[in-house]
Design a binder for these strands. Sequence first.
DNA 1: GTCTATAGTGCGATAGAC
DNA 2: GTCTATCGCACTATAGAC
Lengths: 205, 205
Amino acid sequence: MAHIKVDAVDRDSSVDKVEQILSGAMQEFLKHGFAGTSMDKVAVAAGVSKATVYSHFQDKEGLFKVLIERLARKKFNSIFGTEPPEGEPAIVLRQLGTKALQQMVSDEEHRAFMRVLIGESGRFPELAQVCVRAMIKPVVETLTHYLASHPELKITDPEAVARILLGTLVHFHIVQDVMHGKDILPMASDHLIDTMTNLIVSNAN
Amino acid sequence: MAHIKVDAVDRDSSVDKVEQILSGAMQEFLKHGFAGTSMDKVAVAAGVSKATVYSHFQDKEGLFKVLIERLARKKFNSIFGTEPPEGEPAIVLRQLGTKALQQMVSDEEHRAFMRVLIGESGRFPELAQVCVRAMIKPVVETLTHYLASHPELKITDPEAVARILLGTLVHFHIVQDVMHGKDILPMASDHLIDTMTNLIVSNAN
DNA sequence: GTCTATAGTGCGATAGAC
DNA sequence: GTCTATCGCACTATAGAC
């Protein structure tokens, strides 16, 4: 029993340590980017020693990659991780846009993640591609499929429309929140979403 | 005459140094970001001594800010710096989109600039706002004005449509080029631009 | 704990304009 | 000769990778 307990504790604490490290690394990397983050700070933020960090991850780059790939999955799930939409396009599109934008705006972590991801996409091209595959591609495909399943919208290129939808929302979020443009270019997200929905739906006339 | 020439030489060489420094700083900051850039490397890339760098710019942060503000103006001019568009919307919008996208795609420097600007928008919020004011706001206003001057398009919210236009193009560029998503989510820019143009123009029916 | 890199400073030397 | 800008270099102190 003691033996079993030790094994369990060992495994648990090992997993816990990894989680702790990733949690500390997230705070630091998201706040300061790759170059601006020190492994000392990561260790402190994680509440472990530097040696522990290096015992679980090869180096700074390895830790960074694991963290970003994790975050890509997490953010995709929290923002677009609902079932594929069904129903009246005018309503579904508005709901989808409103919900996605709300999720992005209310999530400070997501803003920091976008900054780091785009900011480091020059130094870590493969990592950026992993995120495109894990986040953007699934969204485009889901939207494309939904649009294509509504022939009454008379959309000839559903994938292009899906990109217009996604691009409009994400760019709006980047300008308003990531780049702090709210006060300089104020705009109610409802207006944007309504206008975009109308553009797509009124095509059916 | 000698007097005039001397004055001119003095001013020129001083300006030249500043230009040299900014040019070296551009190479380094655009490649490695703010935290990843050292002032030693900047001095080497600029072909001047570190003392000279510090004689013209207060510190690393000051140099970075001047550089980014300059680049914001430069990039705005090179990509959207044409006269306000006139003529048939279907043609003007297609031309505008095609030209803007071509400019962005063919400009490696622009990609690096977007990475740095978005990547450092957490650490330098005022700087991001300067760029919103200098680049995005003028584009949105120009597009809004153009769309509003064509009542036959029956657009109720021209500014929202302007944002959809801009967002579609910029997000496409970010995914395809900045984040290296070309091979993962291939799409011809013509299709995107045609689809977007049709969405806006066919509203008039 | 070790070893390297970096921000920023200070100083002597140099070169050119007057 | 004087003044100014620049250079090259040495130096401190700190931070950070491992």
